[in-house]
Amino acid sequence: MADNVIEIKGLKKSFGENHVLDGFDLNVPRGNNVVVLGKSGSGKSVLIKCIVRLLEPDEGSITVLGENVLEMDHDELDRMRVRIGFLFQNSALYDSMTVRENLEFPMRRHWFDITKEDADQRVNEALENVGLLYAADMMPADLSGGMRKRIGLARTLILRPEIVLYDEPTTGLDPITGREIVELIMDLQQKYNTSSVIISHDMQVARMTANSVVVLADGKNHAQGTFDQLKASTDTQVKQFYEGVT
Protein backbone atom coordinates (compact mmCIF):
# COMPACT_ATOMS: atom_id res chain seq x y z
CA MET A 1 0.00 0.00 0.00
CA ALA A 2 1.28 3.43 -0.94
CA ASP A 3 2.33 5.78 1.84
CA ASN A 4 -0.35 8.45 1.53
CA VAL A 5 0.14 11.76 3.31
CA ILE A 6 -3.50 12.74 2.70
CA GLU A 7 -6.47 10.39 2.44
CA ILE A 8 -9.92 11.83 1.86
CA LYS A 9 -13.01 9.63 1.76
CA GLY A 10 -16.60 10.58 0.95
CA LEU A 11 -16.11 14.27 1.70
CA LYS A 12 -19.32 16.29 1.62
CA LYS A 13 -19.73 20.02 2.10
CA SER A 14 -22.83 22.06 1.31
CA PHE A 15 -23.67 25.73 1.59
CA GLY A 16 -27.45 25.75 1.92
CA GLU A 17 -28.82 23.92 -1.12
CA ASN A 18 -25.50 24.17 -2.95
CA HIS A 19 -23.77 20.77 -2.60
CA VAL A 20 -20.21 21.83 -3.36
CA LEU A 21 -18.49 18.59 -2.41
CA ASP A 22 -20.63 15.50 -2.73
CA GLY A 23 -18.63 12.42 -1.81
CA PHE A 24 -15.14 13.48 -2.89
CA ASP A 25 -12.28 10.97 -2.57
CA LEU A 26 -8.56 11.68 -2.87
CA ASN A 27 -5.23 10.09 -1.97
CA VAL A 28 -1.97 12.03 -2.05
CA PRO A 29 1.10 9.76 -1.98
CA ARG A 30 4.21 11.01 -0.14
CA GLY A 31 6.46 13.17 -2.30
CA ASN A 32 3.82 13.59 -5.02
CA ASN A 33 2.18 16.65 -6.47
CA VAL A 34 -1.53 16.23 -7.04
CA VAL A 35 -3.14 18.94 -9.15
CA VAL A 36 -6.90 19.40 -8.70
CA LEU A 37 -8.53 20.93 -11.75
CA GLY A 38 -12.05 22.29 -11.73
CA LYS A 39 -14.19 25.12 -12.98
CA SER A 40 -14.59 28.27 -10.91
CA GLY A 41 -17.01 27.57 -8.08
CA SER A 42 -16.58 23.79 -8.40
CA GLY A 43 -15.31 23.53 -4.80
CA LYS A 44 -11.53 23.32 -5.28
CA SER A 45 -10.74 25.92 -2.63
CA VAL A 46 -13.41 24.46 -0.34
CA LEU A 47 -11.60 21.12 -0.60
CA ILE A 48 -8.23 22.40 0.67
CA LYS A 49 -9.89 24.59 3.30
CA CYS A 50 -11.59 21.42 4.61
CA ILE A 51 -8.19 19.67 4.80
CA VAL A 52 -6.89 22.29 7.27
CA ARG A 53 -10.37 22.73 8.79
CA LEU A 54 -10.78 26.34 7.87
CA LEU A 55 -14.15 24.93 6.83
CA GLU A 56 -15.87 22.08 8.66
CA PRO A 57 -17.00 19.29 6.32
CA ASP A 58 -20.55 17.93 6.67
CA GLU A 59 -19.55 14.30 6.16
CA GLY A 60 -16.58 12.12 5.27
CA SER A 61 -13.12 11.57 6.66
CA ILE A 62 -9.81 13.38 6.19
CA THR A 63 -6.60 11.71 7.32
CA VAL A 64 -3.43 13.77 7.19
CA LEU A 65 -0.06 12.18 7.99
CA GLY A 66 -1.89 9.23 9.51
CA GLU A 67 -4.12 11.26 11.84
CA ASN A 68 -7.84 11.95 11.52
CA VAL A 69 -8.02 15.73 11.23
CA LEU A 70 -11.75 15.90 11.90
CA GLU A 71 -11.39 14.40 15.38
CA MET A 72 -8.65 16.76 16.57
CA ASP A 73 -9.16 19.35 19.28
CA HIS A 74 -7.89 22.89 18.76
CA ASP A 75 -4.38 22.33 20.13
CA GLU A 76 -3.88 19.10 18.18
CA LEU A 77 -5.11 20.86 15.07
CA ASP A 78 -2.65 23.73 15.56
CA ARG A 79 0.20 21.23 15.89
CA MET A 80 -0.94 19.51 12.71
CA ARG A 81 -1.29 22.82 10.85
CA VAL A 82 2.40 23.51 11.44
CA ARG A 83 3.11 20.42 9.34
CA ILE A 84 0.88 21.69 6.53
CA GLY A 85 1.74 24.81 4.55
CA PHE A 86 -0.99 26.79 2.80
CA LEU A 87 -0.34 29.30 0.02
CA PHE A 88 -3.39 31.51 -0.44
CA GLN A 89 -4.61 32.68 -3.80
CA ASN A 90 -3.90 36.33 -2.95
CA SER A 91 -0.89 35.42 -0.76
CA ALA A 92 -2.67 36.85 2.34
CA LEU A 93 0.43 38.69 3.56
CA TYR A 94 -0.11 40.57 6.84
CA ASP A 95 -0.22 44.10 5.50
CA SER A 96 0.62 45.81 8.80
CA MET A 97 3.98 43.98 8.94
CA THR A 98 7.14 44.19 6.86
CA VAL A 99 8.18 41.21 4.75
CA ARG A 100 10.67 40.17 7.45
CA GLU A 101 7.99 40.36 10.17
CA ASN A 102 5.63 38.35 7.96
CA LEU A 103 8.18 35.55 7.83
CA GLU A 104 9.10 35.79 11.51
CA PHE A 105 5.48 35.73 12.64
CA PRO A 106 4.84 31.95 12.41
CA MET A 107 8.34 31.12 13.69
CA ARG A 108 7.99 33.23 16.83
CA ARG A 109 4.73 31.48 17.67
CA HIS A 110 5.99 27.92 17.34
CA TRP A 111 9.70 28.00 18.08
CA PHE A 112 9.64 29.94 21.34
CA ASP A 113 13.33 29.44 22.10
CA ILE A 114 14.64 30.49 18.69
CA THR A 115 17.39 33.09 18.97
CA LYS A 116 17.36 36.31 16.97
CA GLU A 117 20.38 35.12 14.97
CA ASP A 118 18.66 31.83 14.06
CA ALA A 119 15.44 33.62 13.14
CA ASP A 120 17.34 36.13 10.96
CA GLN A 121 19.26 33.34 9.30
CA ARG A 122 16.06 31.41 8.50
CA VAL A 123 14.31 34.50 7.17
CA ASN A 124 17.29 35.38 5.00
CA GLU A 125 17.49 31.82 3.68
CA ALA A 126 13.76 31.81 2.90
CA LEU A 127 14.04 35.15 1.10
CA GLU A 128 17.11 34.00 -0.82
CA ASN A 129 15.19 30.90 -1.91
CA VAL A 130 12.62 33.12 -3.60
CA GLY A 131 15.19 35.69 -4.81
CA LEU A 132 13.84 38.54 -2.73
CA LEU A 133 16.39 39.11 0.02
CA TYR A 134 16.45 42.81 -0.87
CA ALA A 135 12.71 43.10 -0.09
CA ALA A 136 13.06 42.14 3.59
CA ASP A 137 12.18 45.57 4.92
CA MET A 138 9.48 46.41 2.39
CA MET A 139 5.78 46.53 3.21
CA PRO A 140 3.42 44.15 1.34
CA ALA A 141 1.65 47.15 -0.23
CA ASP A 142 4.91 48.02 -2.04
CA LEU A 143 5.25 44.58 -3.67
CA SER A 144 4.07 43.49 -7.11
CA GLY A 145 1.71 40.50 -7.55
CA GLY A 146 4.58 38.15 -8.40
CA MET A 147 6.67 39.36 -5.46
CA ARG A 148 3.73 38.90 -3.09
CA LYS A 149 3.34 35.33 -4.34
CA ARG A 150 7.03 34.62 -3.76
CA ILE A 151 6.94 36.08 -0.26
CA GLY A 152 3.76 34.09 0.43
CA LEU A 153 5.61 30.97 -0.69
CA ALA A 154 8.61 31.82 1.51
CA ARG A 155 6.31 32.31 4.52
CA THR A 156 4.49 29.06 3.77
CA LEU A 157 7.74 27.09 3.71
CA ILE A 158 9.52 28.73 6.62
CA LEU A 159 8.17 26.22 9.16
CA ARG A 160 9.36 23.39 6.87
CA PRO A 161 5.93 21.77 6.30
CA GLU A 162 5.69 18.20 5.05
CA ILE A 163 2.64 18.99 2.91
CA VAL A 164 1.90 22.20 1.02
CA LEU A 165 -1.54 23.20 -0.25
CA TYR A 166 -1.46 25.73 -3.08
CA ASP A 167 -4.64 27.67 -3.87
CA GLU A 168 -4.42 28.90 -7.48
CA PRO A 169 -0.70 29.73 -7.34
CA THR A 170 -0.61 31.49 -10.73
CA THR A 171 -3.96 33.26 -10.76
CA GLY A 172 -3.65 36.97 -11.46
CA LEU A 173 -0.08 36.69 -12.78
CA ASP A 174 1.16 37.16 -16.33
CA PRO A 175 2.25 33.90 -18.08
CA ILE A 176 5.97 34.58 -17.61
CA THR A 177 5.70 35.34 -13.89
CA GLY A 178 3.27 32.42 -13.52
CA ARG A 179 5.86 30.11 -15.07
CA GLU A 180 8.57 31.47 -12.76
CA ILE A 181 6.35 30.79 -9.74
CA VAL A 182 5.69 27.23 -10.90
CA GLU A 183 9.42 26.62 -11.42
CA LEU A 184 10.06 28.04 -7.96
CA ILE A 185 7.44 25.73 -6.47
CA MET A 186 9.13 22.75 -8.13
CA ASP A 187 12.62 23.79 -6.98
CA LEU A 188 11.52 24.30 -3.38
CA GLN A 189 9.56 21.06 -3.40
CA GLN A 190 12.68 19.16 -4.37
CA LYS A 191 14.80 21.07 -1.85
CA TYR A 192 12.47 20.46 1.10
CA ASN A 193 10.95 17.16 -0.12
CA THR A 194 7.33 18.18 0.36
CA SER A 195 4.13 16.63 -0.96
CA SER A 196 1.52 18.98 -2.35
CA VAL A 197 -2.02 19.54 -3.49
CA ILE A 198 -2.21 22.25 -6.12
CA ILE A 199 -5.59 23.80 -6.88
CA SER A 200 -5.66 25.35 -10.31
CA HIS A 201 -7.42 25.78 -13.61
CA ASP A 202 -4.15 26.61 -15.34
CA MET A 203 -3.10 23.74 -17.60
CA GLN A 204 0.52 24.96 -17.63
CA VAL A 205 0.62 24.43 -13.86
CA ALA A 206 -0.81 20.92 -14.25
CA ARG A 207 1.60 20.01 -17.05
CA MET A 208 4.69 21.25 -15.22
CA THR A 209 3.98 20.05 -11.70
CA ALA A 210 1.55 17.13 -11.59
CA ASN A 211 2.42 13.55 -10.76
CA SER A 212 -1.32 13.06 -10.80
CA VAL A 213 -4.21 15.21 -12.03
CA VAL A 214 -7.71 15.10 -10.52
CA VAL A 215 -10.71 16.64 -12.23
CA LEU A 216 -13.24 17.88 -9.68
CA ALA A 217 -16.72 18.02 -11.19
CA ASP A 218 -20.18 17.82 -9.61
CA GLY A 219 -18.54 17.65 -6.19
CA LYS A 220 -16.80 14.36 -6.99
CA ASN A 221 -13.42 13.08 -8.08
CA HIS A 222 -14.61 12.85 -11.68
CA ALA A 223 -11.37 11.62 -13.24
CA GLN A 224 -7.82 10.96 -12.09
CA GLY A 225 -4.61 10.05 -13.87
CA THR A 226 -1.34 11.45 -15.10
CA PHE A 227 -1.43 14.60 -17.21
CA ASP A 228 -0.97 12.59 -20.42
CA GLN A 229 -3.52 9.91 -19.46
CA LEU A 230 -6.20 12.54 -18.96
CA LYS A 231 -5.12 14.35 -22.09
CA ALA A 232 -6.04 11.21 -24.03
CA SER A 233 -9.41 10.92 -22.26
CA THR A 234 -12.60 11.12 -24.29
CA ASP A 235 -14.66 12.26 -21.29
CA THR A 236 -16.43 15.53 -22.10
CA GLN A 237 -15.67 17.28 -18.80
CA VAL A 238 -12.00 16.28 -18.93
CA LYS A 239 -11.72 17.43 -22.56
CA GLN A 240 -13.14 20.81 -21.59
CA PHE A 241 -9.98 21.48 -19.63
CA TYR A 242 -7.52 20.09 -22.09
CA GLU A 243 -9.03 21.52 -25.23
CA GLY A 244 -11.12 24.37 -23.91
CA VAL A 245 -14.16 22.67 -25.55
CA THR A 246 -17.48 23.69 -23.96
Binding site: L54, R79, F86, F88, A92, L93, F105, P106, R109
Partner: peptide
Protein backbone atom coordinates in the same frame (compact mmCIF):
# COMPACT_ATOMS: atom_id res chain seq x y z
CA UNK B 1 -12.22 48.15 9.41
CA UNK B 2 -8.78 46.64 10.11
CA UNK B 3 -10.05 43.23 11.17
CA UNK B 4 -12.76 43.31 8.48
CA UNK B 5 -10.18 43.92 5.80
CA UNK B 6 -7.93 41.19 7.27
CA UNK B 7 -10.90 38.85 7.17
CA UNK B 8 -11.83 39.48 3.54
CA UNK B 9 -8.20 39.31 2.36
CA UNK B 10 -7.79 35.94 4.16
CA UNK B 11 -5.09 37.25 6.52
CA UNK B 12 -7.02 35.89 9.50
CA UNK B 13 -7.28 32.50 7.73
CA UNK B 14 -3.53 32.67 7.05
CA UNK B 15 -2.87 33.07 10.78
CA UNK B 16 -5.24 30.22 11.56
CA UNK B 17 -3.57 27.78 9.13
CA UNK B 18 -0.12 28.67 10.38
CA UNK B 19 -1.22 27.27 13.74
CA UNK B 20 -1.43 30.72 15.34
CA UNK B 21 -4.54 31.64 17.26
Amino acid sequence: AELGSMKVTEQIDAMEVSGTN
